[in-house]
Design a protein around this nucleic acid. Structure first.
Length: 295
DNA sequence: CGCCTTTGACCAGCGC
DNA sequence: GCGCTGGTCAAAGGCG
């Protein structure tokens, strides 16, 4: 239940997030994994994938997701030793059309130069920013997942600075916007709670880190630990990756309807690792259902 | 003192 | 064309 907002009833009004919703179903296969992950800055060894396979063959194909997610939330899940339900997600795509409109935004950084960010404004130059008129905001690769946690901001090995918060329509919980504190890094992430299940935190990452994770000044564990944990936490799901278009079949292997209705691969993975540090509560809570969405 | 959070306003994209 | 909503900016305040 929790994990799913059954039937096309997106928790947080994803449907509305045009830009975040899929521009087209993009999944990628294992081949892409590493690259994808790499793009996101989640550098994991191939073993991770294998590890995953070993743990749950069913997810083998989705190892990518697993890895990626694990890099982020998986760690926590693993650490916390909580249940992990993997489930791909995708917004029902409306097909090509939608793809055309919103997906167009993710045009690789070419479009713009200025847009990218270099910038003009002090802090915000990040890539996907709203630049001048006429210039579209550039979307970075994104993926989202749901985590069961009491804390909104889950630690993932990087330092984030909150730069905004907005009330979400149809949800009593606000959505927070974070940006990587590394000046050279343009990664951003959004954090919001499911309106249906407050215990679920929906985190969406955008962009890729161009640096290594860092320790937490304020305490917490470091990336290594998280990464390690991630290996133990195979969560599966599929990635929606804007830049990669996968074969239809693949993208439909777990179709949206399933996803939305929560019927899908709701596999529960029980990470045996409990490498959790007492202070890690904030560390990516318990991954509930990773949802990779395009962007 | 530096960094981070909060918060209101502004702007752009999208749907109707 | 208009209105709504999402996303971002930037000033102010708080905390370590």
């Amino acid at each position: 239940m929790d994990d799913d907002r059954a039937g096309g009833d997106p928790p947080t009004d994803f449907s509305r997030e045009g830009s975040w919703s899929l521009g087209g179903d993009y999944f990628f296969g294992c081949d892409r994994e590493s690259s994808i992950l790499g793009e996101f800055g989640w550098n994991l060894q191939p073993e991770a994938s294998r590890e995953l396979d070993r743990i749950d063959p069913n997810f083998a194909r989705c190892s990518t997701a697993s890895v990626a997610e694990s890099a982020v939330g998986g760690a926590a899940a693993a650490a916390a030793g909580q249940e992990v339900q993997a489930r791909p997600v995708g917004k029902p795509l409306s097909n090509d059309q939608s793809a055309s409109s919103s997906s167009s935004e993710d045009v690789p950084e070419k479009s713009t130069a200025s847009g990218g960010g270099s910038g003009g404004k002090p802090l915000s130059d990040s890539a996907s920013k709203v630049k001048k008129k006429g210039q579209k905001r550039i979307r970075q690769p994104r993926f989202a997942f749901m985590t069961k946690s009491e804390v909104d901001h889950l630690e993932d090995g990087y330092r984030w600075r909150k730069y905004g918060q907005k009330a979400v329509k149809n949800s009593p919980y606000p959505r927070s916007y974070y940006r990587c504190t590394n000046t050279k890094c343009i990664v951003k992430k959004r954090v919001e709670r499911s309106s249906e299940d407050p215990t679920i935190v929906i985190t969406t990452y955008e962009g890729q880190h161009c640096h290594h994770t860092v320790g937490f000044p304020r305490g917490g564990l470091i990336s290594h630990e998280a990464a390690f944990a991630s290996h133990l936490c195979p969560s599966a799901s599929q990635f929606y990756y804007p830049g990669v278009q996968l074969p239809r079949e693949r993208s439909l292997s777990i179709n949206e309807s399933q996803v939305l209705s929560g019927e899908t691969g709701k596999s529960q993975l029980l990470p045996q690792a409990s490498h959790q540090h007492p202070a890690d509560e904030g560390l990516l809570g318990d991954m509930v259902s990773p949802r990779m969405r395009n962007v």
